[in-house]
Design a protein around this nucleic acid. Structure first.
Lengths: 181, 181
DNA sequence: CCTGTAGTCTTCGATATCGAACTTTAGCTT
DNA sequence: AAGCTAAAGTTCGATATCGAAGACTACAGG
């Protein structure tokens, strides 16, 4: 018998261990939340690799993505970005600073309310988003390669229901600027 | 008709927008990866609230959790922590420093190989883990409250399959120290 | 043995995020 | 209309993470 490489304990095994110490926990809940956070960490690492190739940090990419997802005219307030990305306003300010220096976004005061600021995306920013998206989509496809279309649909639906539950707790008045009077 | 509060666009709506600009993307894949990263961010924010009540940072809690999940004798090498948590060794060193100062873990050289270090959990650390777990489990249950047991099982299974796919790409030799000769 | 090489953790400098204080503007209240 | 209060971003100090360089140990080959 060749000396076989040691394998990491499975998630189920690891959870089983601490369930013995705190029996009130729901094993299925623990499995879901642990898998979720681990998956996100791995995804972050993978994305970072591709983003490095495009001279962009993960945080900067998130902002560009949010702007593209906002749709025409691709403008958002910092406060909306802060809510959607789940970051403090301070972090948004700095991300915008960097993207601005790179010429990927614009920042101007909102004429309708001079306390507000309008962040927009430049053509270069739009192109950069597309460039990264091409790289990222290869990884994303690989991540889901073991799931057939039906399973992908189910997974997306279940996750969306969880998301709705948590995002409703932190509502945001805003969205696309064009939605406003 | 009362002036109704504006609602955030749904994830499906936001994805639909950028699918128009890059048609090769698989809508189901995009839905899954976007929901995943957003969920994790919201969960982080929620956990942070509870952790603050226990005077612990999220990173410190992750280390305690990994040690408990390792099972008796609750010891891991920094390198294993680094792999399991998806962080650089440097970050692990600092987290251990803090936990050490708080008296929640131990750190000693491995007698079998003096390059290695053994990180263990103290009784206080174990108690702290339990304290946080009690708080966290309330949030976790709330997060999954809309899913029946069958759906929870399906979600856990699907996520685990994704996780296996990404974690296999970054193997780690190790695990519990007792597994070694 | 002695040296070279690989592996493990720590240190160091740079950057990103957070929480809190501050600035500016808008909208109310009297 | 003057001042109050609330809201939106920015600034500031503290902390966490990363990447790269460094220190130390084990092991293999001459």
């Amino acid at each position: 018998m060749p000396p076989k490489r040691r394998r990491e304990p499975t998630l189920d095994e690891q959870i089983a261990i601490y369930l013995r110490e705190y029996r009130e926990l729901d094993p299925q809940v623990e499995k879901v939340v642990n898998a979720l956070s681990r998956l996100d960490r791995r995804m972050s690492v993978a994305y970072s690799r591709h983003l490095g190739a495009a001279d962009l940090s993960q945080g900067e990419w998130e902002v560009l993505k949010a702007l593209v997802m906002a749709g025409d005219p691709y403008q958002l307030w910092p406060g909306t970005l802060s809510n959607r990305l789940g970051l403090t306003p301070a972090a948004i300010t700095h991300r915008i600073d960097r993207l601005l220096a790179a010429g990927l976004v614009t920042r101007e005061r909102d004429p309708a309310n001079r306390v507000r600021v309008i962040v927009g995306i430049t053509e270069a920013g739009h192109q950069k988003w597309l460039e990264v998206m091409r790289l990222a989509s290869v990884f994303e496809e690989g991540l889901l390669q073991d799931l057939d279309p039906q399973e992908r649909g189910v997974l997306g639906e279940l996750l969306t229901r969880l998301l709705r539950r948590v995002e409703d707790d932190q509502p945001d008045a805003g969205g696309r600027l064009t939605d406003l009077d």
